[in-house]
């Protein structure tokens, strides 16, 4: 853990998804860029409230699946019809219908791996250290509390202003969090 006493940001705690959603809309309107909301489960409508861009994961996974399927068909064609041609049960060397099952399976495998690894990549996970973990109260984010953190790295960030805004939005507790971003 980084020991320097550098300010990471302001962390505010909320009681309910409703308060969180409302606060997110206001924080966005206040013009902050580097901030995030935290909740024990996905809160519906929060992407819109925060103004998030849609996830590109769908396209990534689609490309993964197409790649997997194409490689699958190519592999079977090359192995059965080119590198080791052998007539089996009177079927053509390149008997494409028989190659569809494995083509499909490899498409699914690549698509699923892309979706999972892409999710981790886009989220910057695994991330063993996070300054927020130093907050005792933040442990409840995986239980029953909702948080907003505005980072000190945000160009608009002024400690007092951010604290005031979050308090005004109904935070039940506001604290400063230190640590390397």
């Amino acid at each position: 853990m980084a020991g320097e006493n550098k300010l990471y940001g302001v962390l505010a705690e909320f009681e309910s998804p409703k308060d969180l959603l409302h606060a997110c809309e206001k924080v966005r309107e206040a013009g902050y860029q580097k901030w995030d909301a935290y909740s024990p489960f996905p809160v519906h409508g929060i992407e819109a409230a925060m103004g998030q861009k849609p996830s590109p994961l769908g396209w990534m996974s689609f490309i993964g699946a197409i790649t997997g399927a194409s490689l699958g068909m190519l592999m079977q064609w090359w192995m059965s019809a080119v590198d080791y041609p052998l007539v089996i049960s009177g079927k053509p060397l390149f008997s494409w219908p028989a190659f569809i099952p494995i083509t499909f399976e490899l498409g699914v495998l690549f698509g699923a791996l892309t979706a999972f690894l892409g999710m981790l990549l886009l989220n910057g996970l695994p991330r063993p250290y996070n300054p927020l973990f130093s907050s005792e109260r933040f442990a409840r984010v995986t239980d029953d509390r909702f948080f907003i953190a505005i980072e000190a790295a945000d160009p608009k960030f002024r400690t007092a202003e951010a604290k005031d805004l979050l308090t005004k939005l109904g935070a039940t507790h506001v604290e400063l969090v230190e640590g390397q971003a």
Binding site: Y38, S39, V43, E47, M50, L57, A112, N123, L125, Y129
Partner: peptide, 19 residues
């Protein structure tokens, strides 16, 4: 893996679940 319940993470996570 350092999960914090970030809303930005949840969005990609839900998309990945859907896919």
């Amino acid at each position: 893996v350092g999960w914090t319940g970030s809303a930005r993470h949840w969005m990609n996570y839900e998309k990945a679940t859907l896919i």
